[in-house]
Amino acid sequence: MTHGEVTAGTTHVVPHHFDSPEQAFEASKLGIWLFLVTEILLFGGLFVVYIIFRALYPEMFHEASHHLNKVLGGINTVVLICSSLTMALAVDRTRQNDSPKANQYMLMTLFFAACFMIIKYVEYSHKFHEGLLPGANFTFEAIQHPKTPLFFSLYFMMTGLHGIHVLAGMGLITWVLWRSNKGQFSSAYYTPVELVGIYWHLVDLIWIYLFPLLYLIG
């Protein structure tokens, strides 16, 4: 295979240091998986803090979590699961050379992601209003335990970091949607769609743990 060969059906050029499009695809995928490992360890730090403090103050976590909105959290879980489905379908359609349908699925994914952020906004503004704020800004008085601000520090750090990932994912999906719309992807080359999809599922995966850990204590 000569360097810089144009693969059939697209304008994508396989970088010259790869032997074949397959190898390029596999290398990219290994890259995204390694990235996901770092992501898990990034969130892992917060999970460790969570585990230690929950072990130290179980009754405080129990009481504080009652001040989170289980219903909104549950709706957001469903919303993210739906967005994961539409993203998986978008990747599937792209691979089947059905870009128009894939674009629709990506738009739906963006819609769900936006829903998630709006619900998150409603939740956050409610917490701000009540004074359920992290650390020294905590002014809520109905919870007695002196360590309660700790729970809300964790809540805002964990959901905040996750929210940043949702926003980044929305940007990435917009980018692949734009490229897909220009007809740049096909069964021969769809690496960016695949990788953005994998990243998006990780965002879902992390929320799957955050939801019971923060909202569903007892």
Partner: peptide
């Protein structure tokens, strides 16, 4: 293996800290 290793490292992280 790469992805599962993330959870192994997470286990070490949690285990040693705890």
């Amino acid at each position: 293996v790469v992805f599962v290793s993330a959870f192994a490292f997470l286990g070490i992280f949690v285990g040693l800290t705890a």
